[in-house]
Simulated scan of single mutants.
Amino acid sequence: MTVQTVATASSADTARARIRALIISGDLEPGSRLRERDLSQALNVSRVPVREALQQLEAEGFIDTSPRRGATVKQITLRDVNELFDVRLSLEVLAARLAAQASARGESSSRLRQMMNRAEEATQGHDHTQIPLSNTALHAEIVSMGANSLLECSMKPLLGRMQWLFTLTGNRDPQIACAEHLSLCQAIYDGKADLAAALAFSHVELGRVPSLQCLSGRLPER
C-alpha cells in the first residue's frame, strides 16, 4: 500500500466520521442532497475521499443514492428502528456473553470500566451531547472485549445507527439506561456470562417500546 493510498484512506475515514456526525446531529437533515463538491469544500479534502466516505455511509445505512438525485441523507423510519432492535437482541446478547467469558478467563476489563465511568459522568452531568457518544462507546467496548472478529465486523455498521438512535431519543430519561448499563457491566466484570446475556437482552428489549413511543409522530412508519 502506497503512502498516497494510506493518506486517501485516512482522509476518507475522517470525512466519513465528520459527515456521519452532521447527519446524527441533524445538521444534515433527512432528504438533504450530499454533493461531493460542496462536501469537499466544507471538509477541506479532495473529492476522492468524500466519494469513498459516501459509499461507506451508504453501506452503514446513513444515506441513499439514486441515479436522479445522487446521494441524500436517509430518512430513518420506525420500521428501521424496530429492525435495529431486532438485530441488537441477537448480537448484543452474544457480545455480553463473550465479554463476561473473557473476564472470567482473567482478561482485563479496565477499558470497559473506563467507558462505564465516562457514560455515568455524562449522565450525572446531564451532558446530552456526550451521553449518546459515551453510551455508544460503552456498547462498542463490550463487543471489542469479546475478541470475536466476525461479531465486531457485524456490529461496526450498527454502532453508528445506535448512536443516531440514542441521539434521536435523547429526551428519554438517561438514568434508566445508565442503571441498566451498570448492572450489565457488573455482570461482565464478575464473569457471569448467563447473567450478562440476560441483562443485555433485557436492556435492549426494555428500550424498544419507549424509543418507538418517543419517535412516534416524528418519524414515518416506513
Rank of each mutant, 00 (worst) to 15 (best):
S103Y: 08
D80C: 01
C153W: 09
M1L: 15
G31H: 02
M115L: 09
D190V: 06
T2E: 14
L112Q: 13
A53V: 10
F85G: 05
E58C: 02
V143I: 15
A193E: 09
T14L: 11
H181N: 15
M116E: 11
I19A: 00
A59G: 06
A140F: 04
M115Q: 12
D38I: 05
E83K: 10
S11A: 15
Q75Y: 00
M1S: 13
D173T: 04
G207F: 01
R88L: 15
E52W: 10
A140K: 08
V93Y: 00
V204G: 04
W164S: 01
G31R: 10
S11F: 09
R222S: 14
Q163G: 05
V87Q: 03
R208T: 02
A99T: 09
S11G: 04
I63C: 02
A99Y: 09
S202Y: 10
A21G: 06
E92H: 14
A9I: 06
S108I: 13
T123E: 05
R161D: 07
S202H: 15
L151G: 08
C178P: 07
Q124H: 12
R118I: 03
D13F: 05
S183K: 13
T8C: 03
G106W: 10
R111I: 07
S110H: 07
A21L: 01
R118Q: 14
L151P: 05
A71G: 01
A59E: 14
W164K: 08
H126P: 03
D173A: 11
L34W: 02
Q186Y: 07
A137Q: 12
R97L: 12
E52R: 11
S144C: 09
V143Q: 06
L159P: 01
R111C: 07
S40W: 02
M162Y: 03
H139P: 00
S154D: 13
S40L: 03
L159H: 01
R111E: 15
I131A: 02
G61M: 03
E107F: 11
N171I: 14
S110K: 12
E121G: 05
D86S: 09
F62E: 08
L159D: 08
G26A: 03
N117Y: 07
V73N: 00
A193Y: 10
T8Q: 14
I63G: 01
P67N: 08
A17D: 15
L133P: 01
E121N: 10
S25V: 00
L91R: 04
V204K: 01
R208Y: 13
